[in-house]
Structure formats: C-alpha cells, structure tokens
Design a protein around this nucleic acid. Structure first.
Lengths: 321, 321
DNA sequence: GCATAAATTGTTAACGTTATCATTAGGAGA
DNA sequence: TCTCCTAATGATAACGTTAACAATTTATGC
C-alpha cells in the first residue's frame, strides 16, 4: 500500500485537505505551499485512492459490460463490439469492467448488455436495475441499438433470388437468441414474397462455426442435390459450406450459390470471396458506449428507444454475377 | 441510489452491523432477527455498496488488463488472450478492468500487461508498480509467461528446409515488439544452422494483415522468382501470400511453400490448409490469470520468473509432403 | 439460585477521500 | 487605527461498509 493523504499530512505539516486541493484545485493552493506539497507528493510516490474517491463522488468511471456465460469467449462478434465499446469509453475517461455475473453492478456508473438469450431478456424486465443501461439487441422499455437482422437476411436472400437461384436452403445458428431467429425470419419473408417454396427440409440449425457449416452443407447436398443455393447465418458457416460444396463436386457459384452474414473482415481469407452482409459491429460498440455516456451525463436529454442499423449487402464471387 | 445499511437500520431498528452480519456471516444472526432483516433487505431492494467494501477490505476483486493504445483493438491475438484471462478470473470471483491508461491501477488488486513495445518494457522497469503484476511476454525482474517465438520460428523454418525448400523468404511484422523480433531471429537461426543464405532482399517487414501479406508476396515473387518458400510471421500474412502466389501463377505447395504462425482457428478457412505454428493463446490467458491470483493470494509461494510455452508445429498442405 | 460461559446485539472507530463551514492572516479603504 | 474583504489553510463530518471491542441477554453447571 502506498502513502495516503494523512501520511503526507504528517510529513509535510499541511492538512490532508490542502494536499487534496493542491492536486485537484490548482487555483486554491499556490506559491511555496504548492511547491513543497508537490515535492512531497513526488518524493513519497503518492497516488490517490480511487476507491475512496468513488465513495465520496458516488461514481467510479467504470462501465459494466455484461457478456453471459454461455457465450463462447472467443466469439468474434462479441469481441469486436467489446473493442468498440472499450475504445470509445477509454477515450472518455471510463474503463470497462468485463464480467459475467449480474450481481456486481453496484460498483459501476452504467451497464451495457449484449448476447442475451430470449430468457435473459425476459429476466431483464423483472430485475429493475437502477443504473443507466443500454442493450445491444432489442427489447421493450430498454434503450437499445441493434442491427436489423430481418432486413439483412431479406436483402441477401432477395439478391440470391434475383440472380436466379430457386431451391434455396438455409443454414442457421441454433442459439436461442433474437438475432438468430430474426435472420431465419428474414429468409422466410424473402422466400414467401417471391412465392418460392421454403422447404422445411432445406433448413438446418447448428452451431456457429465452419465445421458445423461443413457438415450441414455435406448433408444438404447429399440428400437434396436439387438445392442450388445455401444462405448461411454467418461467414464461418458459409466458409464451411463452401468447403462442403468443393468436396461434393459442386462448383461455387455456378452450380451452388453460397452467402454469408457478418462481414467480420475475413474477406481476403475465404475463397471465393463471399457474398455477405456487412454489419458495422465495431461502430455499433462505439454507439452503444456513446449512448450510455449520454444517459449517464445528461439523463434528461436522452430519447429512449430502439435504433436499428440497416446492414449492407456486399456482393462477392460466391453467388452468380 | 439504493438504500444503505444505515437506512435499513432505521427502518428495522437493528444496527447496521447486525444487518451486515446477517448477510455476510450467516452463523451469527439466526431466528426471528434474521427473518425480519432478510425480509427488509428484500422489501427495500438492498444491495451492498462494493466501493465501500473495497475501502474496508483494501481489495476490489478487480484485475487490471493493460492493452496499449497502439494495439489494434480488433487484434485476434489480444482478444483471445483477454478471453482466457477474463474466463478464468470470472470463475474465481474477479472481474477484468480493460483500460488503456496506466494511471488507474490503484483501484485494482493486480495487473496483467500485454502487447508492450520494447519501449514500454523499458518504462516498466522505472515505474515501480507496487501491485502484483504479470506480463505476457518476457522482461527481466517481472513474472512473465510467453510463447517461445524463437523456437517456434526455428521449428517451422527447419521443417521447410527439411522438405527441400532452399530459397526461403521471410515476411515479418513490423511492430517494434519482442515477439516480432524473436520470430525473425528464429528464421535467421534456422537458416544459418543449415548453411543457407538468409538473403536480406528476401526479408520484408510489414503490417500484420492479409492485404500486406499479399503485397509483400507479389513483390517478392516478381523480383526474386527464384524464391521457393515464404515463411510468414502470422497466418493472416500467409493467407495474403497464398493469394499472391495464385495471382503470380505459382502453385502452393509445389512451386512455392508458404508457412504461417499463430493457429488462431482459421484452419478450416484458409485454403490450402496452412503449415503453421500453433500457440495455445487462450490457455496462456488462463495461465496468466492463474499466476496473478497466486501472487495476490499467496505472495510468498510464487516462484517468480519467466516461463515459456513451446509452440506446436502444425503441418498442413501449404508445404510439400 | 448463583456464578460463569456462551450467544446475541450494539458502539465506536476506521478505511481514504472531499464538502462544508470555520478560522486565521494579510491587505484595502476610510 | 479600525473595519471589512479576500485569500489561504484547517477542523469536522460525511460517503457505506466492517473490525474490534463492549454490553446485554440467555443458557449451563453445580
């Protein structure tokens, strides 16, 4: 433990409050006194105790970032949003407390929640958290920012249909989260709007990784060779499906179209380059942080509600031209 | 602000300390008293103020994770170590404070540092931080965990040489960090040991991404077509180099061997599958956290020093069989 | 029934800051 | 010289909790 204001007070002969003022209110302590105190501060390596400060000010400059347990900790999506959040907050004097437990939120000035399951969202309503809170996703009576996943999946399915694909399969993510459901909904919407048969057998839900995509692809192409396009709920799934197409002697994009969803910067790595949906995830992290700081510092001026980002279609070589 | 112990004290008629004991030392308060107090706690939604607790206990259960500004916040490497760290710490009741500033470290129980530049490491020695600290990397007089980058790059270069490649180029990462220097050193060591010419013209340092790898590859193959293998300092660089090989009509692995370094789980995505070095990065994050908690909780029993992980060679199809 | 031990609850102070109000010293104005 | 004002510094209490000790009540043994 380092030296405290009291300790310095004994050493210098000045009271603790004068030393505090020297450091925090430069106008109030000048001349010789100031010099002597600053000298002692330096000599004894005084650093203020932020915990004590937090107790007085009733604010910690710490923001709680809740990422639930069941979320793969190496999940790209989560990591990139976190990066955006901590980037913005860091620039504004806040730190991010990464934790997986609810009950620690008393220490912080505000909360950002993400990756919630449908049940989590229900629980949220009953919890009555008193601190400012924003959610990545969408839920009633909570300030939210989200990607319009329904729209995104509609856009890319529309695109596939425009390019002439007709027997379109869907490989989705099996997690019980709104965004996964929304993406499936988008696929269904688009198929219906174009009077295409959304054959239930063409729909697979699985874990979000290339290997699962590969297995799903192998099976779909084996049992339903008439399928001419596979719309995937993530780029990783699509990467696996492309490999499955290769191993099933189906050429991409001629004999089989494949689409992704995410746009997490793997453009140069997956071949052929994916037709996918780009979501500005890092930027959304920044926006979440911005919104939260607004709520903390100007509670009256924030118009609550949900704001959606419309994602962007990125056309690659995994669908016909 | 919620209700405090004092508030509950007035309401219930019991003293603050009795309520505190009811919640923290179940043995000491039983029967009717306990019931009444727990009832009030529930009714008025009391939650303890962890800041005040931290002031008393002089510990916050928060660990500081320092990731410097100049590091790309979406960097895979950083993100995966962080994931390992916060995973382990979370299971042990600690939270991770992600911050990019030095001066906030008084609030925490310990520090984990990573991604330091050579200058950062020098500065570290003069800072004299009093809290328990561990470093991902290696530096004198600090407890460290690191990957043996020299050894790793030697292993993979040795492997390339064994497979018959002779004109071996090196594409490195230009950041001023020990691990980048070490990887270059490993390449040089291996070349010298095999009496091969480590031609300076065959060596390029660039940013760590696929695009830079692509550009480096294009140039190397254009000006020095005799090159028969390109050893890269990361998988992303290698992915770019493979694409450069394709565009330069050089077949991988027959006409050109390519190796990566990282093994960040892109095995299924990059084609052909890379010969690379696998580093258990997530696990290293866990080990860093473990070591730090040991230092915090059993300061006497920790044998300080540097421990190295020997990375693992993963043979793929980007080098000859 | 009394002495003593054990269980229960309370009082005070402490953790390291800062806010509020009080005090002292020095200077300006008459 | 006296009053009043300003500037500089200090004393006390407060933030919400727990530690250490004290006081009270209840139980136990003879």
């Amino acid at each position: 433990m380092g030296i405290t204001l009291k300790g310095l007070s004994k050493i210098t002969g000045y009271s603790a409050i004068t030393i505090s003022r020297t450091l925090n209110k430069p106008d109030l302590v000048k001349g010789k006194t100031r010099e002597k105190i600053l000298c002692a501060v330096k000599k004894y390596h005084y650093t203020p105790n932020n915990v004590a400060k937090a107790l007085v000010y009733n604010r910690t400059n710490i923001i709680y970032l809740y990422v639930p347990y069941n979320l793969d900790p190496t999940n790209q999506f989560v990591l990139q949003v976190s990066a955006g959040i901590s980037g913005y907050l860091g620039e504004h004097g806040y730190s991010v407390l990464l934790s997986k437990k609810w009950y620690q939120h008393e220490t912080v000035d505000g909360l950002i929640l993400m990756g919630l399951t449908i049940e989590d969202e229900e629980n949220l309503k009953t919890l009555s958290i008193e601190k400012p809170l924003v959610l990545f996703g969408h839920s009633d009576n909570v300030d939210c920012i989200d990607v319009d996943n329904i729209k995104g999946m509609e856009m890319i399915t529309d695109h596939a249909i425009e390019k002439g694909y007709k027997k379109i399969a869907f490989v989705g993510i099996s997690e019980n989260k709104k965004f996964t459901q929304d993406r499936y909904l988008g696929y269904q919407n688009s198929m219906q709007r174009h009077n295409l048969d959304a054959n239930k057998n063409y729909v697979v839900f699985t874990s979000n990784n290339a290997k699962s995509g590969y297995l799903a692809g192998i099976n779909l192409l084996k049992y339903y060779p008439e399928i001419d396009c596979i719309v995937c709920s993530s780029d990783d799934l699509a990467a696996g499906v492309i490999q499955a197409a290769n191993d099933s002697n189906r050429s991409v994009p001629e004999s089989l179209g494949v689409t992704g969803f995410d746009g997490l910067g793997k453009e140069l790595i997956i071949k052929p380059e994916l037709t996918t949906i780009h979501q500005p995830i890092y930027e959304i992290g920044v926006e979440l942080a911005k919104l939260l700081l607004k709520k903390i510092n100007h509670p009256r001026n924030v118009d609550a509600g949900i704001s959606y980002y419309t994602p962007e279609l990125k056309i690659g070589n995994s669908t016909r031209i």
